[in-house]
């Protein structure tokens, strides 16, 4: 009985994780600007991997490998926002037509962004 419950929980989490993954990849394709695509990519890094690895942790049970999976999720949660921040900064410094995609408040702000990055 507990086997079936474990399987159902793990299948629930895995299917939810697959749904999030497909949504994220679809988002990276459909959005038209790089800064919008970061939103879609961050979905995969945080929620997608949480659900999929929760499914695996439940399926594995109480082993050393499930502890390593928990450490993996925590590590990825720590590094993924920093990666998104750096990519956003890159896009902001190297974009030629920035004012077409977003409102910039004053004229000096554009120069400051391009100088400091």
């Amino acid at each position: 009985m507990s086997d079936i419950i474990r399987f159902l929980l793990s299948a629930l989490f895995t299917l939810a994780g697959l749904f999030v993954t497909i949504t994220s990849v679809l988002g990276v394709f459909r959005f038209r600007y790089a800064l919008n695509r970061i939103h879609a990519a961050a979905l995969l890094d945080t929620l997608g991997i949480l659900f999929m690895l929760l499914g695996i942790i439940i399926a594995l049970g109480f082993q050393v490998a499930s502890l390593k999976a928990v450490i993996l999720v925590v590590f990825l949660w720590m590094t993924s926002p920093v990666a998104s921040h750096l990519i956003g900064r890159l896009q902001l410094t190297t974009d030629e037509h920035l004012s077409e995609h977003m409102e910039i408040e004053s004229g000096d702000m554009l120069e400051e962004i391009k100088k400091e990055g």
Partner: peptide, 23 residues
Amino acid sequence: PQIADRIIAINMMGTLTIISIAI
């Protein structure tokens, strides 16, 4: 079309590989 798109895609490919290895 831009560099940031490519870096985002490479990062995502890495994460998908991590999930595959865990499975």
